[in-house]
């Protein structure tokens, strides 16, 4: 179809505008991460869009090897929070994927656990804030507060609905002939699942795991409630990064923000074609 030139001009104008709005906040943070302290905060008149003298000081500062011209040194570096975020997100993903994949297969093939789909949707529905009191009490009771494994457990539960629903749609889409053939050959059901189904589903498992990881990595509220000092995650640590002497540590926070933002963006773009399926609980496939 020959759309008119006017439409094309309108299209590109609108898209470029949207791209600018999309990118400016991210670029501003990226630029801030490389600015020396002198360029951090400035009055409106002499605001710097690009670092005039780019530096890695902010990164050195949060890892404790430079004070970045600040009088203060950090009482703790970003190393442990990054580790906390990694451990809790990775193991949370593991829990969600294990329970979710097994459960989804059980439902998809054997019709077990008919209550799960709706129960899990409801789990996702409610604001975490509205169920946190009992969770906080229970976690305190089991000694799970302020540990990465306690965080991993709650992450595993919170993202279980996504893991379950994603894997369920993948299993529903998978042709059963191959499994049936193996069954006829005399393999047990469990063996078929472990040796045939799971290896075949490797791409689906990888996309689902990345999706769940992004969700876990993105958490702020739960970590804010369940960690206090030892195992705070990146967002919690970042919010605490300000000093009474210097006020907001813009550059340092931006550097940390950049470190936190890059992995999920790359992963998200990598699993682009499954995003719709994940976000809509499999109701919509692309």
């Amino acid at each position: 179809m020959n759309r008119s030139l006017t439409f094309e001009i309108f299209r590109y104008t609108a898209i470029l505008l949207a791209l600018a709005v999309t990118l400016i906040p991210t670029l501003w943070m990226a630029s801030m991460a490389f600015k020396p302290i002198a360029e951090w905060s400035a009055a409106g008149a002499d605001l710097t869009w690009w670092p005039k003298s780019p530096t890695l000081d902010n990164f050195r500062f949060i890892f404790g090897t430079s004070t970045s011209d600040l009088i203060v040194a950090l009482d703790r570096t970003a190393g442990k929070p990054i580790l906390a975020s990694l451990l809790s997100a990775v193991f949370g993903t593991l829990i969600a994927m294990t329970a979710g994949t097994a459960g989804a297969y059980g439902l998809s093939r054997f019709g077990s656990g008919q209550n799960l789909p709706l129960a899990l949707i409801q789990l996702r529905l409610f604001p975490p804030m509205a169920v946190m009191i009992p969770v906080m009490i229970m976690w305190a009771f089991f000694g799970l507060v302020d540990t990465w494994w306690g965080l991993a457990l709650i992450y595993g539960i919170v993202t279980l609905p996504f893991a379950f629903w994603l894997m369920k749609t993948f299993f529903d889409d998978m042709p059963r002939e191959i499994e049936d053939a193996a069954l006829v050959e005399g393999c047990s059901r469990l063996r078929v699942f472990m040796k045939i189904t799971l290896p075949m589903m490797r791409p689906a498992l990888a996309s689902s795991a990345l999706f769940v990881f992004i969700l876990n990595w993105s958490d702020y509220l739960i970590a804010l409630l369940l960690t206090t000092r030892e195992w705070v995650t990146i967002p919690v640590y970042m919010a605490s990064l300000s000093s009474s002497m210097t006020g907001q540590l813009y550059g340092a926070k931006a550097a940390l923000g950049l470190i936190a933002a890059v992995p999920p963006v790359i992963m998200g773009i990598a699993i682009q074609k499954h995003l719709v399926r994940g976000l809509t609980f499999g109701a919509l496939k692309q």
Partner: peptide, 16 residues
């Protein structure tokens, strides 16, 4: 590129 914002950690987006 259009999809980037939704993948940025919300807390980080808040800071931006």
């Amino acid at each position: 590129v259009m999809l980037i914002p939704m993948m940025v950690v919300p807390a980080v987006a808040g800071y931006m």
